[in-house]
Design a protein around this nucleic acid. Structure first.
Length: 989
RNA sequence: GCGAGGGUGGCCGAGUCUGGAAAAGGCGGCGGACUCAAGAUCCGCUCUCGUAGGAGUCCGUGGGUUCAAAUCCCUCCCCUCGCACCA
């Protein structure tokens, strides 16, 4: 529905004013003559026609037993559609249209993904009146002020963008979607389908319950998402190892990211002024910071605080290393943050420049030590203990790092870099020393996890989760890591992985170099937590407190498309396990198969599997691989994904698009400015689907100009009188038709590999080049030329129909009475191919360019050369004996030695010795850049006759008399004439 | 660090798999034709040198293989994307 008021907003122009089309539109009837190109008018007519006739509604048909089913990720309407999305959906549309012309029954459906929290977050920011959000809605997406209140519920928000942006944009682009099948992932019927999926997976033991770290607001006392954060959006979960140092029966856990350095601990640090507690943790007494006690409680430990204490309590005490049994001294340190991890850290001065410098400073500050009752001599006695060796550093790597960097105090910014560099170096290249027994001599990166696990199992280590930076909730509360019971998809299951690999090995991966990425992802994927605490979507069937998260409720929904529109007639409560089991596994799969499901199964069976899924590059590492996993498990081999085509990223004027910065182009505005065909053609022609592309106004403008020119030329051809029957064709006509067949082959081949750029390039631009020559070369008013041009136009319209459907439908219908999309895809006509015509035409072209080159060279001379504007051009064709040499080249191929030995058998040629040798050299060079067929065709070419027949053209072209001579017969060449390279002389009277 | 992709003329980009032409096409620029003029269209030029179709120098860096390398192999440098619980 388009109201008077909203239309101008949505179609708001972004740049160039529309060209005036004075005098057009007076008559919109298709057979109106001499029409100017007015894309807005003609495209709207075709949109209406498609909508009225339900042109793209696809139903099972006996006419095509092997239909084509293609899908694209359903859009997530948490905001509007921009030109990047437009391409995502246009690429599959072009393929769909191509398959239809090839005679396939094609299903291209779409739906809407609303699961999870982004839409809810967007609504909340709107309701709070956040400026940034309001600006995106008002300015970037042109949401009318009075409509904003409609957006204050999640589904209201989603519905607005679905209807006003996505659907409208997709329809404007002319996407050949079957609109009857749309749904949202919040629909109750869809939820029944997801319920079936998750119950089935649970029964197959592919779901598992376990603990999982989440972001948790200590103020709101609930989990929060990235969108809820004020600070620390980039924060990552870090798993610290707790080294369980002991002081008597009390555990003093020290958090570290480098557990393998435990043997290098020389002392510990605690913040003397921090708040610490003695607490019962899982039945033991622990000494940790107060903050740590709370975090441990949230991380599924049983915690009870017994007594509060200052950090100073521990200062000067000795604690026992659980791995070495050594006792180390605890020193006071202000740099220890009680808010981070346990608030107690161990010191490894041999390998941590930080610790090294801290120790130096402690040794230098006797007064402070004494203040805490520590004997400075004890501190002075602490020496770094190296535990690994790393190339490029001395025995004490931290010492060499600090000295090399010239660091003298812990405030020095260079210290941080030195620490990081050494950390990296040691991780990748450090080898453990002999004290490490089974780990001795190994690289840190190879043993860290194993080492940690060994000691964790042995009771010396524990674990704690912490963020990599401070995280604050929008409510102002601290956000910490909590561990929660969660359900996981067991992507780490070996059998499941094996099946997923099988899918990969059998499918078509486009481009082929993505195949390894799927395999890599499958291997690397671990357990995936598939539920969230809140959000839109389907509730976990056996625990209504949780929602199945977005990447987990979108793995097999392609199957749902096949019956989505017909499911509307089935009462929701009937959509139970038996129903979907019957639908997907057949009547025999259940005891009492619901009849309706048996019936629907036929349609599912008809469309499935998905022939191609078109998707984005960055989804390989999650969504697409999940898609493969779930199909591998839930469906039989014949219903596994057949192919995936990966699409590249979009840029806008060389920069990343960003809706929050308003750096986007809306499809509506672009279509209004240029027309949908131009937008489509640009998006498909500027790069192959999997390559990144760049929306640039000047380029789009140029496409628009080219299409307009195409339209005008086509219009002329359609309006011209041409013979019904094929007349006697001239050489130029046969040449053009021959080129056309090659183009048909090239375009078809490219389409088969989803190379939309190559295909459209060949059909459009490359062929324009041929036509340019044709128009220059021949009189296009000849009846045979008019007939040829019509023939060419009709074929090209069909080849271009997937890309620019509006324009080609219109023109093809005017030309033949049928829209281009309803005409079959062209097949190359071998009888129209003529190597001879191509060879002879390419020679005339070559000669023309040679003459032009000479002319140009003379014209550029500093002095005035009269021959630059010749009255007479003499072309001298190479003598017959030279042709014989070329015949030998055609025979032997581009092999100088072989040709010479053949040629020297001929006594006449042998006499000419060096002359022949030079000629062979040149001809071999000439043949090398041409394929065998072309060389053979040239060998058969009568060169003299070819030029003779073109004299009229040449004299018109150069406005001079043209004379063709044969070397040695009528004339001696003044310059070296060689086959296919006649001598040329320009003369003035 | 790991995985993937990429570095070609003023700019965007083909060419790289299957080694052999200053190297498609477009944009921008210059000149010309047409026109009262503009637009559109058409033609030519747009690395350097050149009064006859020519010659020379190029494809991130440095090596190697080969008669021949943008293309194959190795080194290094730089850029982009992904590395999870987020669509």
């Amino acid at each position: 529905m388009r109201t008077q008021l909203r239309t101008p907003l949505w179609f708001a122009r972004i740049g160039r004013p529309r060209k005036s089309g004075i005098g057009v539109n007076l008559c919109a009837h298709p057979d109106h003559t001499d029409m100017e190109y007015d894309p807005q008018e003609l495209e709207e007519r075709w949109r209406e026609r498609w909508a009225e006739t339900g042109r793209y509604e696809a139903d099972p048909s006996e006419a095509d037993e092997d239909p084509t089913f293609i899908t694209v990720p359903y859009p997530y309407p948490s905001g509007g559609m921009h030109i990047g999305h437009a391409r995502t959906y246009t690429v599959p549309d072009v393929y769909a249209r191509y398959r239809r012309q090839q005679g396939d029954n094609v299903l291209f459906p779409i739906a809407w993904h609303v699961t999870g929290t982004p839409i809810i977050g967007a609504v909340e920011r709107l309701k709070k009146g956040e400026e940034k959000q309001l600006s995106v809605l008002r300015d970037t997406y042109d949401v009318p002020e009075e409509t904003l209140t409609d957006l204050e519920t999640p589904m209201g928000f989603a519905r607005y963008f679905i209807e006003e942006h996505y659907k409208r944009g997709m329809k404007s682009l002319g996407l050949s979607v079957d609109w009857r099948r749309e749904f949202t992932t919040n629909d109750e019927r869809y939820s029944k389908f997801i319920t079936w999926q998750y119950e089935t997976l649970r029964d197959r033991n592919l779901l598992e319950k376990g603990l999982h770290p989440v972001k948790y607001c200590t103020n709101e006392e609930q989990p929060v998402t990235t969108h809820d954060l004020l600070e620390g959006e980039e924060a990552e979960f870090q798993e610290y190892t707790l080294v369980r140092f002991g002081r008597g029966d009390t555990v003093v856990p020290m958090a570290t990211l480098r557990p393998e350095t435990v043997r290098g601990v020389t002392n510990a640090y605690v913040n003397p002024d921090g708040d610490y507690v003695y607490a019962d943790v899982d039945g033991e007494e622990w000494f940790v910071s107060a903050a740590a006690a709370e975090k441990l409680r949230l991380q599924a430990h049983d915690v009870e605080v017994r007594e509060e204490a200052a950090g100073a309590e521990l200062v000067g005490e000795r604690v026992t290393n659980p791995v070495t049994g050594d006792e180390v001294l605890v020193l006071p340190a202000d740099f220890v943050d009680p808010e981070n991890a346990t608030g107690v850290v161990m010191s490894v001065p041999a390998h941590s420049p930080d610790d090294y410098v801290a120790l130096q400073e402690a040794k230098a500050d006797d007064a402070r030590m004494e203040e805490y009752g520590i004997d400075p001599a004890d501190v002075e006695a602490i020496e770094p203990i190296p535990i690994l060796t790393v190339e490029g550093y001395d025995e004490i790597p931290a010492q060499s790092a600090v000295e090399e960097a010239g660091v003298t105090s812990s405030d020095d910014p260079a210290l941080e870099k030195a620490t990081k560099d050494l950390y990296n170096k040691e991780f990748h290249a450090g080898r453990m020393n002999d004290d490490y027994d089974e780990f001795a001599g190994e690289l840190v990166e190879d043993i860290r996890t194993r080492f940690r696990d060994t000691h964790r199992d042995g009771g010396a280590f524990g674990t704690m989760q912490e963020f990599s930076e401070h995280v604050v909730c929008r409510c102002g509360g601290d956000v910490v890591v909590a561990e929660q019971d969660t359900w996981f998809l067991r992507y780490n299951d070996e059998d499941w992985k094996a099946k997923a690999h099988e899918v990969v090995s059998e499918m078509d991966a486009v481009p082929e170099n993505t195949r390894g990425e799927y395999d890599h992802t499958i291997d690397w994927l671990n357990e995936w937590p598939c539920i969230r605490n809140y959000g839109l979507g389907t509730r976990l069937p056996w625990d209504e407190d949780f929602v199945i998260e977005p990447l987990s409720d979108s793995t097999v929904y392609m199957a749902y498309y096949t019956i989505a529109h017909r499911l509307q007639d089935v009462p929701v409560e009937e959509l139970d396990r038996e129903f979907f089991d019957t639908l997907f596994y057949g009547a025999d799969a259940v005891d009492d198969a619901p009849e309706r499901a048996v019936d629907l199964r036929e349609e599912w069976d008809y469309w499935y599997p998905v022939d191609y899924r078109f998707s984005a590059n960055d989804l390989i590492s999650n969504h697409l691989t999940f898609y493969l996993f779930h199909h591998a498990e839930l469906f039989d081999r014949p219903n596994w994904p057949q192919g995936i085509v990966i699409m590249g990223m979009g840029l806008l004027e060389g920069e990343k698009m960003s809706s929050s910065k308003g750096h986007v182009v809306l499809p509506g505005a672009a279509i209004d400015d240029y027309g949908a065909d131009t937008v489509r053609f640009f998006l498909l022609n500027s790069a192959e689907p999997w390559q990144d592309y760049d929306w640039r106004d000047d380029q789009v403008e140029s496409v628009r100009t080219q299409l307009e020119r195409f339209w005008n030329r086509a219009d002329e051809i359609i309006e011209s009188d041409a013979p019904e029957e094929r007349p006697e064709l001239a050489q130029e006509d046969r040449w053009l038709l021959s080129k056309l067949q090659a183009t048909v082959r090239e375009v078809t081949e490219a389409m088969e590999s989803s190379e939309t750029r190559s295909a459209s390039q060949a059909a459009f631009y490359n062929f324009e080049e041929q036509l340019r020559w044709y128009r220059r070369r021949t009189d296009t008013d000849r009846p045979a030329a008019r007939w040829t041009l019509r023939e060419v136009l009709e074929t090209r319209l069909r080849l271009l129909a997937p890309f620019v459907p509006f324009m080609t439908n219109e023109l093809h219908e005017r030309l033949t009475g049928t829209p281009a999309e309803d005409a079959p895809w062209p097949e190359p006509d071998a009888s129209a191919e003529s190597a001879a015509a191509e060879a002879s035409e390419s020679q005339i072209e070559r000669l023309t360019e040679d003459i032009l080159g000479i002319q140009q060279s003379l014209a550029n001379a500093d002095e005035d050369v009269p021959e630059a504007d010749p009255d007479r051009i003499v072309v001298t064709v190479a003598a017959d004996w030279k042709r014989e040499v070329f015949a030998a080249v055609a025979e032997e191929g581009a092999d100088q030695g072989a040709v010479m030995s053949t040629v020297m058998q001929n006594p006449d040629l042998r006499e000419r010795g060096n002359e022949v040798n030079d000629l062979v050299g040149e001809l071999v060079e000439f043949a090398r850049s041409r394929d065998d067929g072309e060389v053979a065709a040239l060998a058969d070419l009568e060169e003299y006759e070819t030029y003779e027949a073109a004299t009229e053209f040449l004299s018109r072209e150069f406005d001079a008399d043209v004379e063709i001579r044969l070397e040695g017969d009528e004339a001696e060449a003044t310059k070296q004439a060689i086959p296919f390279r006649p001598a040329v002389e320009l003369e003035v009277e």
